[in-house]
């Protein structure tokens, strides 16, 4: 009977991890952090100060929902990168290695860094639950948008381009029309504590 033992171990891990998972709120200031990217280079978010916006994207290599947005993430980062917006990917999934992340990024033409969040420390701090899950900060590093990229995973019937709308608003110095959205995504695979 392997299941009960496995269940017990996982249950203890989740019970212990649960209090560590927080959530950042709209209007809250970014707490800068440093993490190594998929190439081993340390990225300090403090170095992005002065950018017109910072987009943090919790993403995955194996999640079909996150993967359905690969092209849209690459295109948005190119388009808005040219306007002074910094895009940063974060991979918090325990089972996705830096080698896999680097290969996936190259395959999909990602030009933004992808940070490996070992031990899902940042996912816990932000309260990120799924991939893809997006956080947009304004030039004062205040959280202005949290949620999905858009409202259609397939990309064929998008009616609400939420990330684009948020970035356009931040760049124009206006209020983000819809500051929080929800969508289906893959669970971030956390380590047990």
């Amino acid at each position: 009977m392997r299941l009960p033992r496995l269940a017990l171990v996982t249950s203890v891990g989740l019970a212990a991890a649960a209090p560590a998972i927080g959530a950042v709120a709209i209007g809250e200031k970014l707490r800068p952090f440093k993490l190594d990217d998929a190439t081993g280079k340390t990225v300090d978010l403090g170095g992005l100060q002065g950018r017109k916006a910072v987009v943090l994207m919790f993403i995955a290599t194996q999640c079909p929902v996150s993967n359905s947005y690969n092209e849209r993430m690459a295109a948005l980062s190119r388009e808005y990168g040219a306007k002074g917006v910094a895009f940063v990917g974060i991979n918090s999934n325990r089972q996705e290695s830096v080698e896999e992340i680097a290969g996936h990024a190259a395959e999909h033409g990602f030009t933004f860094p992808i940070l490996k969040d070992v031990g899902n420390v940042q996912a816990d701090h932000f309260g990120a639950q799924v991939t893809p899950e997006i956080y947009v900060y304004d030039p004062a590093w205040v959280l202005r948008y949290h949620g999905r990229i858009d409202d259609d995973r397939s990309g064929a019937n998008v009616k609400s381009r939420d990330l684009r709308n948020a970035l356009d608003a931040v760049l124009a110095g206006q209020a983000v029309p819809v500051a929080e959205t929800k969508a289906f995504g893959c669970t971030i695979k956390r380590v047990g504590r």
């Binding site: 639950q129 409202d151 009616k159 929800k182 969508a183 995504g185 893959c186």
Partner: peptide, 19 residues
């Protein structure tokens, strides 16, 4: 239909994560 209306309709506290 739209994900968000479905998620909130099932339970407002649900983030949309599955399972």
């Amino acid at each position: 239909g739209p994900d968000q209306a479905f998620i909130d309709g099932v339970d407002r506290e649900w983030s949309g994560v599955v399972p």
